[in-house]
Design a protein around this nucleic acid. Structure first.
Lengths: 122, 122, 122, 122
DNA sequence: GTGGTCTAGACCACG
DNA sequence: GTGGTCTAGACCACG
């Protein structure tokens, strides 16, 4: 399920990238699975087709998906890239918080609390 | 020590806001302490005075500092706002990662590793 | 209708903020309605675009509006923030007057008289 | 009792003006009473003497006090000017709120609530 | 000297 | 076209 938050501060194309990586990481989209056609997804989400195309182009350049002319886009061989993409921002913000002097334990507490609210997953 | 990462994606004024909040959280700047003059800080960092002024204006509107006409800007009464500002982004990214299906433990491992690299603080 | 009093002592950007909150409070701008483009409004009011941008930036940071890249600014979910903004100064001045020893009834009389002059609204 | 809020947004000289008008309105300073010497008041409040001098100059120009060379400043004949000064800002903010569409009754409620908190005076 | 405001003009990301 | 950011430079109130 690809969802977009129009009110969010993250660019839409970036949200699409992450959303697709999330599905790959969760195993919803497996290796060599076809992902939704760019135009169909754009229509479904009410987005400009160029925006979805941009997201797919980025994922292809990153080696997370590959495109076959006239066939569509497919999930590339798994090597952790999709998973890493989901934690990149988190890692960046972790470093920033630590650099600002926030104690490690404070961050872990935040993760624990958020996980509890999220339904005890993990 | 207020520092700016010109290569970073965060706006300069936002980095200034966070940097000052970090100093407040660490106790470097205490209640009613004067923070650096906007123009002096701009000169020191090689920035336009308006950029620093924007940061100070935001911090004042948020109640983290207050300005006294002709005197400068000072740290307002402590109430955790400065500390919260430092972990807001981290919390947001934590939620996004969890929502994307990243296991809690993966996030904690990232925090632990980053803390080690950061000098074992925490 | 967004209007500015150039002779007033309130900063222009603050007048814009309040004016927009007034339209929201009156229901002229409803949830998810688009507010005027910053540049168009600046042109209409004879202001520098930056001044309007400052107002919009403040309203967004306060959660009263949200911006969508390339689309414009929109009214955020209603939660009374816009309404509160319109009476904040009044409340502050009320407290100051009472603290200075002005009787409550004197203030109410002033409100009644002003309302009559304003066209008997209320 | 003349008091100043250094963290406040109102200029110090204006706070002095109002504070003295408040004492006059309350009858603490009566007609022809001598008000505190500018230099003494500045020392007591930790202010620049020029700031107090500016406030006294304004009150004299407004006819609220009069100065006698070598003797000091004294309360002028009562004619409501001091009282009006205390409600001027309130009246201004009342008009602004009404113009923004705030119902009269909302303002009266705010006055009532503030008066209750202020100790039921009025 | 200090911060607050505004104009002018430029560049950028996003869609 | 839209808002977001930044530089440059000016003027003002305040003390």
């Amino acid at each position: 399920m690809i969802t977009i938050d129009m009110t969010g501060r993250a660019p839409i194309y970036e949200q699409i990238c992450r959303s697709i990586c999330g599905e790959i990481a969760k195993g919803v989209y497996k290796e060599n699975d076809r992902i939704p056609a760019a135009r169909a997804l754009a229509k479904e989400l009410g987005l400009n087709p160029n925006t979805v195309a941009k997201a797919y182009g980025i994922l292809e350049r990153e080696g997370i998906i590959y495109s076959v002319a006239g066939k569509g886009c497919f999930v590339a061989k798994h090597d952790g890239r999709a998973d890493r993409r989901l934690t990149e921002d988190f890692e960046q913000k972790t470093k920033e918080a630590l650099a600002a002097g926030v104690p490690k334990q404070t961050l872990i507490d935040i993760v624990e609390n958020a996980a509890d609210e999220n339904g005890g997953n993990g």
